[in-house]
Simulated scan of single mutants.
Amino acid sequence: MTTYTIGVLHGDGIGPEITKATIEVLEAAAARAGGVNFEFVKLPMGWEAIDQYNDPIPQVTKDALKDMHGWIMGPHDSAAYPEQHKENRNPSGELRHSFDLYANVRPAKTMEGIKSVVGQANLVIYRENTEGYYCDRNMYIGVGEWQITPDVVVSAGVFTRRAVERIAHAAFQMAMQRRKKVTIVHKANVIKLGSGLFLKVCREVGEHYPEVEVDDFHIDEMTAHLVRRAHFFDVIVTENMFGDILSDLAGELVGSLGLAPSINTNENQAMAQAAHGSAPDIAGQNIANPVGLMLSTVMFLEWLASRHSDESLLSVARTMESGITATISSGVTTKDLGGSVSTTAFTAAIVEHIAR
């Protein structure tokens, strides 16, 4: 029986509450499914790390993560950090940059018991995670943004063939497991060189997957298409900023951003991280919705199962997911979804479903 070492970064705001709930459900699913062991290692991040190390993502945490199979990361409240820390990458951006987690994978799928704005939909967005217009992570050293005068700022967007090729391959490989359709989202009509390279390279990669149907849309028209016919899309591949915006839109359209999961991956490691923020206004009230992080952990288990060819991990993922969906479809939900149960009561209901 293999033991997988998983880092746990509780984070800020509602982070400790939803992370604790996620680990509870994961442990229940592992006990039910059997065949796999997990070793959870708690590591400092966010305000906890600032208090201990004067750094929201200290080197001791990054060093420990190097030897782990992956980690579960709660949200951070970097907007509230002391000014000295706002000059650096936030914890999420730093880990994506440090570990070259180039693929941010964000599905948007309708769920039974959750009202969708767009009817039935089941799509996944592959967001390039290392460059584009995200100035805090698109340079090897330094930040891709300069203030020329008090009234003039230049922000750089970076597009490289290497980065586009690997996110495109990841997207097409996923499409081969789904409905064999990839949509490239870009702005090549205006950003002719940068976004043009993204479109060109994605099209070239698509030639290696002749079974996959390929189309493309400009980012502005894509937002309208998502609202009007989300069911039409299967796998969407796009650059960093466009992917960030589209995935938040898609998550809200199919039910709630609070339900939206994601993972950040390279070939060897993955980070489970919900798409939403730390919600400091409701922290400590035991009303936070943990589903986004729980489903992110399901995605992480699926990735880990594929990476290590371990069917036991896939069984844990299916058990965990079925417990979550069964609980929601039964009408037991947190306040944000129209229910009335607390975070802990909702978690206990999922654990009970898994046990049954």
Rank of each mutant, 00 (worst) to 15 (best):
Glu267Phe: 04
Ala274Leu: 05
Gln269Asp: 00
Asn266Thr: 01
Val214Gln: 14
Ala272Trp: 05
Asp234Ser: 10
Ala270Thr: 08
Met294Val: 15
Trp303Cys: 02
Gly255Pro: 06
His231Tyr: 14
Glu207His: 14
Arg307Tyr: 03
Asp244Gln: 12
Asp244Trp: 09
Met271Lys: 07
Gln269Cys: 02
Asn289Trp: 04
Pro261Tyr: 00
Met294His: 06
Ser256Trp: 00
Asp244Leu: 10
Ser247Arg: 12
Cys202Asp: 02
Gly251Cys: 04
Ala275His: 02
Leu197Ile: 07
Glu211Gly: 02
Asn240Ala: 07
Val205Asn: 09
Gln273Ser: 10
Asn266Pro: 06
Gly277Asn: 05
Gln273Thr: 07
Thr223His: 00
Asn264Gln: 03
Ser296Pro: 08
Ala224His: 13
Ala288Arg: 04
Asp310Thr: 00
Glu311Phe: 05
Gly284His: 03
Gly251His: 06
Ser309Pro: 01
Glu311Gln: 15
Gly206Asp: 07
Gly292His: 08
Asp244Met: 13
Met294Asp: 01
Ala224Leu: 15
Leu314Phe: 12
Leu304Val: 08
Met299Ala: 00
Ser262Phe: 01
His308Lys: 13
Gly292Glu: 08
Ala274Arg: 08
Glu204Arg: 06
Asp234Glu: 05
Met241Tyr: 04
His276Asn: 11
Asn289Glu: 08
His218Trp: 02
Ala224Met: 15
Ile245Ala: 00
Leu313Gln: 09
Ala224Cys: 06
Ala279Ser: 12
Met294Tyr: 02
Val227Trp: 08
Gly255Tyr: 09
Ser247Ala: 09
Asn289Ala: 06
Asp281Gln: 12
Tyr209Val: 03
Tyr209Met: 02
Thr265Trp: 02
Glu252His: 14
Gly255Lys: 11
Asp220Ala: 08
Asn268Gln: 14
Val298Gly: 03
Asn289Val: 03
His218Pro: 00
Gly284Lys: 06
Tyr209Ala: 02
Met241Asp: 01
Glu207Leu: 13
Val227Thr: 14
Asp215Ile: 10
Ala250Ile: 04
Leu246Met: 14
Glu267Asn: 14
Asn264Ser: 15
Cys202Ile: 04
Ala283Ser: 12
Ala283Cys: 10
Ile282Gly: 04
Asp248Cys: 11
Gly258Tyr: 06
Gly277Arg: 08
Glu211Asp: 15
Lys200Glu: 13
Pro210Lys: 07
Val214Pro: 11
Met222Asn: 07
Cys202Leu: 06
Asn266Phe: 11
Arg229Leu: 01
Val316Ser: 14
Glu302Arg: 15
Val291Trp: 11
Ala288His: 09
Gln285Thr: 14
Leu253Ile: 10
Gln269Glu: 01
Gly258Met: 12
Ile287Asn: 09
Cys202Lys: 09
Gln285Gly: 05
Leu295Trp: 00
Trp303Arg: 15
Tyr209Ile: 03
Cys202Trp: 00
Glu311Gly: 15
Ala270Gln: 04
Glu302Ser: 05
Lys200Pro: 01
Val291Asn: 03
Leu226Phe: 15
Ala279Leu: 09
Ser247Tyr: 06
Ser312Lys: 13
Val201Glu: 11
Val205Lys: 10
Ala283Asp: 05
Ala283Gly: 03
Glu267Gln: 13
Thr223Glu: 03
Gly206Asn: 07
Leu304Trp: 06
Glu311Ile: 05
Pro280Lys: 13
Ser312Ile: 00
Leu304Tyr: 04
Lys200Thr: 13
Val214Cys: 08
Arg307Glu: 10
Phe300Gln: 11
Arg228Glu: 09
Thr238Trp: 02
Asn286Glu: 04
Ser315Glu: 15
Met271Thr: 01
Thr238Asp: 09
Val291Leu: 07
Pro280His: 09
